[in-house]
C-alpha cells in the first residue's frame, strides 16, 4: 500500500520580533494506512505546530521554510497555495481536531445546525438528509442523538471533545490528526475518547490517525507507532512496542520513566528527574538539542547534531548512543 502522507525534512518557523522560533525544524515522518502515529513530547516542543503544518495550515507569523509534504493522490502540499489545499484537502482528506477542541464549537449554533452547514457545503445535502446522516454517525460512534439539538455550552467537556471528533470525521477523511484530544479530560472520559478513536479506525471511517499528546502512557493504549519530539525535532520514531520496550534516545527514556513515577505532580510540571527546561526555540542549542539536559551527554553532542540512524524495521533514532542504548 502507498504511504498516505510523507513529511520530508519539514521546517516551519514563527517569525517574531526577536527572530525565528524554530518550532518545527526538519521533521521527517511517514504515515501509512492503518497507522496510529502517536507524537509525544513536552509542552512547547512544537507538536501543535507540527499538526498544523502537516495539513499546510500555515499562516503568519508561522512560515513554511522548507521540506516536502507529499499527500497520496494530491501531490506536494508544500508547493500549493493555502486556499487550494483548503479546497482540496481540508475536512475531506485530512481533518484536524485542534488542541482547543473544547471551544471549537460555535457557541451560538446547535451541534446539528453546524453539522448541516458542513454537510450542506461539502456534500450538497439538504437539511433532512444531512440530519439523517448525522444521526446515523452519532449512533454509530455511541454519541447520544439528542446532542444534535443542543448548544455547545450544554455539553460536558468530554462530550464536546467527542462531538468535535465526530464532526471532524463526518466526511470520512483519510487522515485524522488529533492534537492533545485527551489532555483536558479526566481518566474515565479519556477512555471513552480513546474508544472512539479505535472505533474510527476499525470501522475504516479514517485510514490513519496522528495522535498528539504530552502523556506517553496514553499512547500505549492506542498507537501503533510512536514519534518522540523534542525542541522541534523528532528524536526517535518507531513501532510502539519497540520504542516503549527498548528506547534508545535518553529523552525517550526520561519520558517513559516520568510515566512510571506515579506522583501526580510529575505529569503536570514536566519531568521531575530531568533537570532544566526545554530550550528556547529562538536560539536552540548547537549540536544535539537535548545535550544540555542529557544525563549521558558527550563532547561530540555539543558540536554536531547526531545523524538519523535506522535500527531494524521502521525504528529510527537521532543519537550517538545508537549502539549502547540509553540507561533506563
Amino acid at each position: 500500500m502507498n504511504t498516505l502522507l510523507v513529511a520530508k525534512d519539514v521546517k516551519a518557523y514563527y517569525s517574531s520580533p526577536k527572530g525565528f522560533v524554530r518550532a518545527v525544524d526538519g521533521v521527517t515522518l511517514d504515515i501509512n494506512p492503518g497507522d496510529v502515529v502517536g507524537v509525544a513530547g513536552e509542552s512547547g516542543c512544537g507538536k501543535s505546530t507540527l499538526s498544523n503544518v502537516l495539513m499546510m495550515n500555515v499562516q503568519p507569523p508561522l512560515k513554511f521554510v522548507g521540506g516536502k509534504l507529499i499527500l497520496e493522490g494530491v501531490g506536494d502540499l508544500a508547493v500549493m497555495e493555502r486556499q487550494k489545499v483548503k479546497a482540496q484537502v481540508w475536512g475531506k482528506v485530512i481533518a484536524l481536531v485542534p488542541q482547543s477542541a473544547l471551544n471549537a464549537l460555535i457557541p451560538t449554533r446547535k451541534v446539528g445546525a453546524f453539522i448541516k452547514d458542513v454537510l450542506g457545503y461539502h456534500l450538497k445535502l439538504d437539511a433532512r438528509k444531512a440530519s439523517a446522516l448525522a444521526q446515523r454517525r452519532f449512533q454509530e460512534l455511541g454519541l447520544p442523538v439528542e446532542t444534535l439539538a443542543k448548544y455547545p455550552h450544554q455539553l460536558s467537556g468530554g462530550m464536546r471533545q467527542r462531538v468535535v471528533i465526530a464532526i471532524a470525521t463526518l466526511l470520512n477523511p483519510k487522515l485524522l490528526i488529533a492534537d492533545e484530544p485527551t489532555s483536558a479530560l479526566d481518566v474515565s472520559t479519556q477512555k471513552q475518547v480513546l474508544k472512539m478513536f479505535l472505533h474510527l479506525k476499525t470501522e475504516h471511517i479514517v485510514r490513519a490517525i496522528v495522535f498528539i499528546t504530552h502523556d506517553i502512557a496514553i499512547l500505549r493504549q492506542i498507537a501503533t507507532r510512536i514519534a518522540i519530539m523534542y525542541a522541534g525535532k523528532v528524536m526517535e520514531v518507531g513501532p510502539m512496542e519497540a520504542v516503549i520496550q527498548r528506547p534508545v534516545h535518553p529523552y525517550t527514556c526520561s519520558l517513559i520513566r516520568s510515566v512510571l513515577t506515579p506522583e501526580p505532580e510529575v505529569k503536570e510540571r514536566g519531568l521531575s528527574h530531568l533537570a532544566g527546561d526545554p530550550p528556547d526555540l529562538l536560539q536552540p542549542p548547537a549540536g544535539c538539542r537535548f545535550h544540555p539536559r542529557c544525563p549521558q551527554s558527550m563532547a561530540i553532542c555539543t558540536q554536531e547534531a547526531p545523524p538519523v540512524v535506522g535500527l531494524g524495521k521502521d525504528h529510527f533514532v537521532s543519537c550517538y548512543l545508537v549502539l549502547e542504548g540509553c540507561q533506563c
Binding site: 495550515n57 479546497a87 475531506k92 481533518a95 464549537l105 452547514d117 458542513v118 461539502h122
Partner: peptide, 16 residues
C-alpha cells in the same frame, strides 16, 4: 477564536 479555526479546518468557505 477557536471555533472559527475549527470551521476553517473543516474547509468551510471564508464567507461562512
Amino acid at each position: 477564536s477557536d471555533y472559527i479555526l475549527f470551521a476553517d479546518l473543516l474547509g468551510l468557505p471564508q464567507r461562512r
